[in-house]
Structure formats: structure tokens, C-alpha cells
Deep mutational scan, measured.
Amino acid sequence: MPVRRGHVAPQNTFLDTIIRKFEGQSRKFIIANARVENCAVIYCNDGFCELCGYSRAEVMQRPCTCDFLHGPRTQRRAAAQIAQALLGAEERKVEIAFYRKDGSCFLCLVDVVPVKNEDGAVIMFILNFEVVMEKDMVGSPAHDTNHRGPPTSWLAPGRAKTFRLKLPALLALTARESSVRSGGAGGAGAPGAVVVDVDLTPAAPSSESLALDEVTAMDNHVAGLGPAEERRALVGPGSPPRSAPGQLPSPRAHSLNPDASGSSCSLARTRSRESCASVRRASSADDIEAMRAGVLPPPPRHASTGAMHPLRSGLLNSTSDSDLVRYRTISKIPQITLNFVDLKGDPFLASPTSDREIIAPKIKERTHNVTEKVTQVLSLGADVLPEYKLQAPRIHRWTILHYSPFKAVWDWLILLLVIYTAVFTPYSAAFLLKETEEGPPATECGYACQPLAVVDLIVDIMFIVDILINFRTTYVNANEEVVSHPGRIAVHYFKGWFLIDMVAAIPFDLLI
């Protein structure tokens, strides 16, 4: 008679799926529990143990900040960024110097990925580790590398530091407007667009060049630039800015003055950032001319202004700041037409079709709590990747769950009947059967004279019903998954307890 339990259901295979997918890609990662103190490590794979030199037993239950890997060259700011990422709910990448158990130093890129439950609360953290440099290539500990984003994938490793954006290309926007319009339909740009040429040739750093990471940081200074100062900065030398009595002219307006920039070969870094931020506020060169004239017309309804409409929906549905990093990277690809469009465009503009998908598509409701890094690593669709929660398995109709209350009560009843059979069957065979043979035949009273025979008949009927119930009862397979398919249940029961239950259900007393 089957006594099969499996009270692990309803099970959740999400954690096993993450481990299996990460292991298949030869990654070095740990999984931490966000619900406990210090976000203790609950799993670390073999790749991480080989990377740091510690065994799994030495890593388990330690804080996922990996303070046991810190050393003299470990930056405090990087460690603080990892700790801050564990307090938030967004994906974050941090470069930090770690030390192995043998004392060797290596520069590592740590990717902190939160995993949320159905309520939107962070319950786990996945920390992925990628070695960037070994100890002989690690720089000085005073050099802070965590304020910069990861290198873009479309640049060669040897040319990542030679990417320079020439400031004269930004200063000569109005001069290039006529050349853009003359391109017409034969050019790649839309009317009114501004073409910015980027020099990728390796050259020595000069005062006129600005690194790509500095251009990325310009967006942080746009908020500090007032509207009046932006307007004066875009007017140009024809209309000098008016300053109040006793007030000095704005240095932001002076930063885009061609006369002032041409007199000296070098520009201050602050002026460069502010000038680029001011130019980015204009949607095209037409807006710059309109600002000089004193009238700013409404933005025209053409394809170039609607190019950012799908980007707005993608940004609203993005799951991490990696989408913004990807957008900034692609927006700086050289030799393309940049349409400086305000994100607050007309909502009635139709979304044009684009061959290049900048932001990841909208994630469906079932995966809105899973970050983009987890979705990318697992390579699963929205119909396959579940949320991290207890999910009731989908069972067929008329199927009994093996952990249901009805099955528990039924098993206790069958257990009592088995005990009765084990006690009274030998007793009936030894004593009652002998008395029946010696006594007179009682054929007239039937079952009324033999109450134990009636009980034995009921017990046999219950055993037959138990066999039928076992054909529709779920079970737990070797992978700790609840199986509810009727065919698989029948095959599993035939290979197991079916023969024993059938022999126990045969009414031998009635056959004798």
C-alpha cells in the first residue's frame, strides 16, 4: 500500500533555474538572501570558489559584500557603492579590487542584480563577478574607477581610450546646418538635424578633445543650467548677453562664444560640459537660429522629431539603469545623424518603425519583477520565466494532490484497515475457520451469522477504491517536481505499489 509523501509542494524551481543557467555559462556568482541580516550568502558556485580561493563552506553565510576579499588596494568608495546597491532595488555595476585567499590582487567587475517577489519586494541578490585585470595590471588604489561605466561593446579594446569628441564640431553647429540641408533625401539625416562627426583615429590627448566618459557625465550638469543662461549661451556672438549692473557675465554663455574659444586653444572642462549641455537642449539648428531671432517656433511634425517616441515608452518600462547606459552608448555611435529632440514631445505622434532597438522591449506582467540581467542570462521568455513566489501546480481535472487534506485522511483510514487485516486475518484463519468446520452448517442466516465476513468484505472494497484513487494521485519525481499527468501517474504506480495493492485487495476469504 503506498505511503508516498512529498510535502515540499507547491515547489518553486526558480532558484534552481537560475543556478542551472548560470552554471551553463561558466559564470562566477553568488546568491544572497536579502531578508536576513547583512544579506548572507546562501549559494556560491564553483567558479566563484576558484576565483577567490575560498571553499564553499568558508563563503556560505558570510555577508555578500565580500568584505573578506578586501585588501589594501580595495577602494572604500567601491565598497560603499556595493553596500548601497544592496540597500536599493536597481541593478548596478561596480569595479573593485579584490584579494584572493593567497593574497593576489585582481580588479573585478561586480554586477549586483536584485530579484523581487510578486509584491515588488527584493528577496534575493545575485552578484556576478568578472575579472577585468590581474594584480600586475591593477593601478594605484588612489585612482577611482567606479565613477565610470563599463566599456562599450562596439569599441575595440585597444581603442576604448582613444575615443574623442571634438569640441569644434559642437561649436560649428550653425555652420554645418547648410551642408545638412543640402544633403536632402540623399543624406542619412532628416531636415533640421545636426550631424556630429566623431574622430576615432588614435591621437595624443589634446586640450581640444573630450573623453567619452566626460560626455556621459554632461547629463548630470544640465539641471544646474538655468533657462535664461541656456538661451544666452545659444544666442551666440551676435547678441551678447546682458548683465545687470554690478553683475558679471555668465561664464556659461561665454563658453560657447566662437570668438572667445578661437582665441585660446584650450577650454576648461567645466565650460566644455556646460556648452555641450546647452546645445543638447535645442532640438535642431533651426531652433538655434530661432533663439537668435527671439522667436522659438513649435517643433515640426516630421520623422526626426518622432524618433524618440518609442524611446520614451522603453525608458518607462525599463527595469534597470543598464538600459540608460545602453541608450547613452548607442546615442554616441560615430558617423550617424543625431536628432536633438526633447523627450517631452507630442504624445499624438505616431511611433516610426526603427531597425535598431535601443531599449529592451516591454516586459510582460509575469516578468515585471525580474531584472534585465536575470532575463538576459536565463534566456527565457515571458511565458517560461515565473515570478519568485509559491505557485500552485497546474493539475488535470479529477486529480488528487498527494499533500491535500483528503489524501491525508484517506491514508490514515487505509492504515487502520491494514492494521485490522494484519490482526484479524490470522485470527480468523486459526480459530474461526476451525469452529466453522466443526459446527453445523448455517446457510440460512447468511452474513448475519458471520459479522467478521462483512467487515472483511468492506475492507476489500476499500482497498479496491484505494487502488483507483492512487491512479489519480500526484507524486514527486526525482527532481522534486509534482507530477499531475494521468499517464505518468499510471506508469509510476504500475512500477511501484500496484502489484502489492492488488494482492492485498483480493478477497481470499470469499474465494475459499
Rank of each mutant, 00 (worst) to 15 (best):
R4H: 15
V8I: 07
P10V: 13
P10Y: 08
L15Q: 03
L15R: 01
I18L: 14
I19T: 05
R20M: 07
K21P: 04
E23K: 01
E23P: 01
S26E: 10
F29N: 01
I31A: 01
N33C: 05
R35Y: 12
E37W: 05
C39L: 14
A40V: 11
I42Y: 01
C44M: 01
C44E: 01
D46K: 05
F48A: 01
C52I: 15
S55M: 04
E58T: 01
V59M: 06
V59C: 04
Q61Y: 03
Q61C: 14
R62Y: 09
P63A: 13
C64R: 01
T65I: 09
C66A: 03
F68I: 01
F68C: 01
L69T: 01
P72D: 06
Q75S: 14
R76L: 10
R76N: 15
R77D: 05
A80T: 11
Q81H: 06
Q81L: 09
A85T: 12
A85W: 01
L87C: 15
E91T: 07
R92W: 03
E95Q: 13
I96V: 11
A97C: 11
F98D: 01
Y99F: 01
Y99P: 01
R100N: 04
G103C: 12
S104Y: 03
C105Y: 13
L107V: 15
L107A: 14
L107Y: 15
L107E: 09
L109M: 06
D111A: 06
E118G: 10
D119Y: 06
V122W: 01
I123Q: 10
F125I: 05
L127D: 01
F129A: 01
E130K: 05
V131E: 15
V132A: 15
E134H: 14
D136R: 12
D136F: 15
D136A: 06
S140V: 07
P141I: 11
A142S: 11
H143N: 06
H143I: 14
T145Q: 11
G149H: 06
P151D: 14
T152G: 08
W154E: 15
L155N: 15
L155I: 14
L155T: 14
L155G: 10
A156S: 12
L165N: 10
L167A: 15
T174M: 05
A175Q: 15
V180K: 10
S182A: 06
G184W: 13
G184Y: 07
G187P: 03
G187M: 06
A188T: 09
A190R: 06
V194G: 04
V194S: 06
V196L: 09
V196E: 01
D197W: 01
V198C: 11
D199I: 01
L200Q: 15
L200N: 05
P202N: 12
A204L: 15
P205M: 06
S206N: 09
L210F: 11
L212Q: 05
A217P: 15
M218K: 05
D219I: 02
H221S: 15
V222G: 08
G224C: 05
G226F: 08
G226M: 06
A228F: 09
A228G: 07
S239G: 05
S239W: 04
S239M: 05
P241I: 12
R242C: 14
R242G: 15
G246E: 15
Q247E: 15
Q247N: 03
R252L: 05
D259H: 04
G262Q: 13
S263C: 07
S264P: 04
A268G: 11
R269P: 14
E274M: 13
S275L: 05
C276N: 14
C276H: 14
C276G: 09
C276L: 08
V279G: 11
A282S: 11
S283D: 08
A285M: 15
A285T: 12
A285F: 14
I288A: 14
E289L: 07
A293S: 15
V295R: 09
V295G: 12
P297S: 07
P298A: 06
P299K: 07
R301Y: 09
A303V: 07
S304A: 12
T305K: 06
G306Q: 07
A307C: 14
A307E: 13
A307V: 11
P310H: 15
S313A: 11
L316Y: 07
N317C: 07
S318I: 07
S322D: 14
S322K: 11
D323Y: 05
V325G: 14
R326L: 05
Y327V: 08
R328A: 11
I330N: 14
I333V: 14
I333E: 14
P334R: 07
T337C: 12
T337K: 14
N339C: 02
N339S: 09
N339I: 01
L343R: 14
G345V: 05
L349P: 09
D355V: 14
R356H: 14
R356E: 15
A360K: 04
P361N: 14
P361L: 05
I363Q: 14
I363W: 10
E365L: 07
R366F: 13
N369W: 11
E372I: 04
K373T: 13
V377H: 04
L378N: 03
S379A: 05
A382P: 14
V384C: 02
L385N: 05
